[in-house]
Nucleic acid binder design. Structure first.
Lengths: 352, 352
DNA sequence: TTGAAAGCGATACCAT
DNA sequence: ATGGTATCGCTTTCAA
């Protein structure tokens, strides 16, 4: 492949001039010279070598994307958005599945340094662990998605931005919806490993219950998935938990699932047990994966404003790569309710 | 960040010696010198700059992954496998969604050159178009997944490897299964845009029908999705096509769906029309996305041996990067049938 | 066994 | 308006 010197020779100019046109510094250039250089580039099918550019400038137009597992539809949708936003800024996405394993995460971060990647989006992973803190200290710019950590967990100022749906509000919204529709025996169903976003959702569940004097009966039921990152595992867990829920006394009439995958499994399990949804039990999920609309009945859910969130992440990443001294911030986005058919059309009158 | 010269100075040796230990050429080295260098690396927290290494060696340990859309669960599963296989060879994955758009594909390929990526996996995309042929001519090593092209389409020798499920066999297997279970009015349902793999599946459908003297009644019913790459769109299409199928005369008793997403939508649409599955109509999909096991009834499907296929792709990619003169080959993998509950438990006795 | 120096392909400063 | 050249961090050949 032709390099900058070949082009320079071919056009009978210096490499500097070629470099100038590469970098759009053509204002002072004689149009004729410019034309000759352009021509030479075309004829030689010249493509500038980014590796060399990077070595010189220290900039790679790549961002890292660390996800627990791309097979999770929420993360797949997120990834598509990130890819879109990255392209809009002329960036490419370097993907890594880490299954929330510390050694996978560490390896990914190391590779980011090695490949000269300056900015990484870390999805749904607690970032108070040493490898993340250390990477930040070494200058890696990171944005966390959906694992907002408390300041004290990070003793003081977190060294990265954070973008998240307001998970307390999401839990509250889902629960409130059930209550408005007349449910009184509320259960929140979750996987037992506690991530930040999960505990926030649970918090929102209790906030809503309390608001309506239902804190006595409101319960959390949990189970352990083989792997906490997978979607198939989540759905399996949901299916398995249906039995546990039906043993509960009294049997609930409204269920909030920590995420859609679990909720869908739950619905399948309940249906197997001849429970009618929503007549006997109402179910609502959180996250709104595409699948939620395809099951029977279509499942109501709570949805994060994905595009806005991704745009913010990209914006912050680029800003802080440009200006590393910029203080990290936390951004919270309000979720919305998507009402479908898995929640009973009960008493719609305003309660209390 | 410390560089190789800092380490050399700190250890009071030359950069060459440091480079030698980086590249494991320590056999001739005095253990004492080696120890000093190792020590210096640790103390300075030295990480070799891969960009600089790449500029010198021309090698980036990244492979490109071009997918129509990561949101499609089949491609997400594939991506996870590719990520695993890449890590096993110390590679990382550079992801691009192209939505089967020529300009997106072109941009992706250009970026691969720009980033020094030598090998790309191209998923479910016809590669007879000029930008792929040209990229191959310029030395990009590619493996195609699931779009095996006929040799004449590529006039002569295709310039890339190809790994694919035997789609004719997949279509045949699915159809044969329906026939074995007693279905006689067969319909193959598909999206109307014809990819290679799709026409092969249809071919297999007719092969099986013919084998059992059912070619007269066997029909293809198709519809057009808004976007042919999306999963949600596929499912929507399936749902919409249910009506069209029920208008067909005679109404079919066995349906092969071109992929699971469409099959699942179809089942939803049929159920809305009060058709019982599998009692009234049997449905079988192709691809085996995780979802297939979660719908009601769980959908039978035909499954490609994903891990083996991905290992082969990775192996071929690395082989041909090392030795570009290696002739490309096409690899076909036999699919397997996964029997669940969407096909009637009909006459199991051997037919004809 | 270790070191010196050229070179990978760009950029950018300083001349002219 | 254009050119010369040091430089980025590493690899590799050749010399000592």
């Amino acid at each position: 492949m032709a390099n900058i010197r070949d082009v320079a020779n071919h056009a009978e100019v210096s490499v500097s001039s070629v470099s100038n046109v590469l970098n759009n510094r053509t204002d002072q250039m004689r149009p004729e010279t410019l034309a000759r250089i352009r021509q030479a580039m075309l004829e030689l099918n010249y493509q500038p070598n980014r590796i060399a550019q990077q070595l010189k400038t220290g900039q790679t137009r790549m961002i890292g994307l660390l996800v627990p597992s791309i097979v999770n539809p929420s993360f797949a949708m997120l990834t598509r958005e990130i890819d879109r936003a990255a392209k809009a800024s002329q960036y490419r996405v370097l993907l890594g599945n880490t299954y929330r394993q510390a050694d996978e995460e560490r390896a990914f971060l190391e590779d980011m340094f090695a490949h000269g990647v300056k900015g990484v989006i870390v999805v749904a992973t607690a970032m108070d662990r040493p490898h993340f803190v250390e990477a930040a200290r070494q200058g890696l710019v990171m944005v966390n998605y959906d694992s907002l950590m408390s300041r004290d967990t990070l003793n003081g100022n977190p060294p990265f931005d954070s973008v998240s749906m307001d998970n307390v509000e999401a839990g509250r919204l889902a629960t409130e919806h059930l209550i408005q529709r007349g449910c009184r025996q509320l259960v929140f169903v979750t996987e037992s490993s506690l991530t930040i976003s999960r505990s926030h959702k649970i918090e929102g569940f209790f906030v809503a219950a309390k608001e309506h004097g239902l804190q006595q009966s409101a319960r959390v039921i949990e189970g352990t998935a083989k792997f906490a990152y997978g979607d198939a595992e989540m759905t399996e867990l949901g299916r398995a938990l249906a039995a546990k829920i039906l043993q509960a006394c009294p049997v609930p009439d409204g269920i909030v699932a920590i995420n859609d995958a679990l909720g869908i499994g739950l619905m399948a399990g309940l249906r197997d047990a001849r429970i009618r949804i929503p007549e006997d039990i109402s179910v609502i999920g959180i996250d709104n994966i595409p699948l939620a609309d395809l099951v029977q009945p279509p499942m109501s859910s709570v949805i994060p404003p994905l595009t806005e969130m991704v745009n913010m992440m990209m914006k912050r990443l680029l800003m802080r790569i440009e200006n590393p001294s910029l203080a990290p911030e936390a951004f919270l986005f309000a979720p919305k309710l998507i009402s479908r058919q898995s929640v009973i059309e009960g008493e719609k009158q305003h309660i209390r």
